[in-house]
């Protein structure tokens, strides 16, 4: 198993797309800095009573969706690039039992995307708060110490989305198909969920992939919490329905379902 793991690590580090994706994910830190700087300029020009009504979501929430999407593409490509080129056949002649191949890909993608997710989310937080400085902008005042659970939760959600991408890519064997499915989970379904009549709209919203990181951190409901993660500019759930352990369970459920479907496909189907 460690042998297959080493091989998958070689595969991941030896293609350009890995570095391109990580670079794009890293660019969100730059975008966070620019957006914060712009916000701070506006804030400084405001009168005190208008400052009280100033709205600015924290950057790590605003930008977690693009980071998730980037690394979901990494998860998808890890397997679909092999199906697209046909190299999967060679890979499976070297690892004929097949499941170790998916297991090794899962481990490598999990490690890389968790590390990348945590680094980028923390960097966005640290950079944007440094630019905010001491300004009491609503939603941007909490310290790193108090925000840390929420930030770590966002990093975990990046890994979860990447693994969902890997699982869907393995099940569908198509880059375009799997990326569409990830976008549906991250953007389309969370947009539709609140439109379902109460109380189901809220309940569905609570288990939508982009809304779980905040509930995982237990911050949901407070203005500075991450419960309302914006997905493509549309609102998620308003109040927390899931406790942190429940949110973790649902996140794990997404991973288990996607990778489970991938495992069935890779072990049962002809290649």
């Amino acid at each position: 198993m460690t042998a297959v793991l080493a091989a998958e690590w070689v595969k991941l580090r030896s293609v350009r797309s890995t570095y391109t994706i990580l670079a794009v994910a890293g660019m969100t830190v730059l975008i966070a800095a620019l957006l914060t700087w712009q916000g701070v300029q506006g804030w400084d020009a405001l009168t005190p009573d208008r400052r009280a009504r100033f709205q600015s979501p924290p950057m790590e929430q605003l930008l977690s969706s693009p980071v998730q999407l980037c690394l979901a593409v990494l998860g998808v490509l890890t397997i679909t690039a092999e199906y697209a080129t046909g190299a999967i056949r060679l890979s499976l002649t070297a690892v004929p039992r097949r499941w170790p191949l998916l297991a090794a890909k899962t481990a490598v993608v999990a490690a890389v995307t968790l590390a990348a997710g945590e680094v980028v989310v923390l960097a966005i937080f640290i950079v944007s708060r440094a630019i905010v400085g001491g300004r009491p902008i609503p939603g941007n005042t909490a310290s790193l110490a108090t925000e840390l659970p929420a930030l770590l939760g966002l990093g975990v959600s990046v890994m979860v989305v990447a693994l969902v991408g890997l699982g869907l890519g393995t099940a569908m064997r198509s880059t375009a198909g799997a990326i569409c499915a990830v976008v549906a989970l991250l953007v389309v379904l969370p947009t539709i969920a609140p439109l379902v009549p109460a109380p189901w709209g809220g309940r569905l919203g609570a288990v939508m992939l982009p809304n779980l990181a905040g509930q995982l951190a237990g911050h949901a409901g407070t203005p500075s919490g991450a419960a309302v993660v914006l997905a493509g500019g549309t609102a998620g759930v308003g109040s927390p329905l899931l406790s942190p352990p429940e949110a973790l369970l649902v996140l794990a459920g997404y991973v288990a379902m996607a990778l489970g479907a991938g495992l069935v496909a890779i072990t049962r189907r002809d290649v």
């Binding site: 042998a3 297959v4 030896s14 293609v15 797309s17 092999e82 080129t85």
Partner: peptide
């Protein structure tokens, strides 16, 4: 035990020949 040439074009074009073979080799020690 068994070596096969199936489809020579079924290789990731972005990888070097060395890394391509290394990733295969490592799985079998």
């Amino acid at each position: 035990e068994v070596g096969a040439l199936l489809d020579a074009n079924a290789v990731h074009g972005g990888r070097s020949a060395f890394d391509h073979l290394l990733s295969l080799a490592l799985t079998n020690g």
